[in-house]
């Protein structure tokens, strides 16, 4: 059996079970930790795809920043009714809907031309060519992304600060 396929299957199994843990776990802090492991395994999938730069970005932004921010939000919104927030009463319908989406998307992938025309080898993405593409073809979207981050930063501060002013 192919070594790549074995590594891919192990990482995928960890990823899907951690993702199921996020949506099924009763304890919300366990959900956040499962999310951390799921995001780290996504970085592993990026490594299988020979995209080491994006794997590092994934670990830094998702594993380092987003999970920490979510844990802080969990800490700040803790109250006594917290453990009792149950699932929606219509959760079986949600399950059926997601299975339908799963089947539809899988069938359309198996019939797609993109799959038939795809290469069978993975072409690695070097950091150098990625960077030169980002700063030539994609320079204006890159600058706009920094603007989006600035607006989101200011917006988050304005929304979350207390009304009283001062402290």
């Amino acid at each position: 059996m192919n070594m790549h396929l074995v590594i891919f299957s192990v990482i995928s199994a960890v990823l899907i079970s951690c993702a199921l843990g996020v949506v099924i776990s009763r304890n919300i802090v366990h959900s956040a930790l499962f999310l951390l492991f799921a995001l780290i395994s996504v970085a592993g999938i990026y490594l299988v795809l020979l995209t080491e730069f994006l794997a590092i970005v994934q670990l830094l932004i998702y594993g380092g920043a987003i999970v920490i921010v979510i844990l802080f939000a969990l800490m700040l919104t803790r109250n006594e009714e917290y453990p009792r927030i149950q699932n929606n009463k219509l959760w079986p319908i949600a399950g059926i809907l997601s299975v339908l989406v799963l089947i539809t998307l899988s069938v359309s992938y198996f019939q797609s031309d993109v799959i038939r025309n795809a290469s069978t080898t993975i072409s690695p993405a070097g950091v150098k060519s990625l960077g030169s593409s980002l700063f030539t073809t994609w320079a204006i979207p890159f600058e706009l992304a920094s603007l989006v981050l600035l607006v989101a930063l200011i917006g988050a501060i304005v929304i979350a600060r207390s009304d009283k002013g001062g402290n």
Binding site: N87, L90, W91, A94, Y109
Partner: peptide
């Protein structure tokens, strides 16, 4: 697709 469906279930059911 599997990961997307799990996420969709989470958005709808929690």
């Amino acid at each position: 697709v599997l990961l997307f469906s799990v996420g969709l279930y989470g958005v709808l059911a929690r």
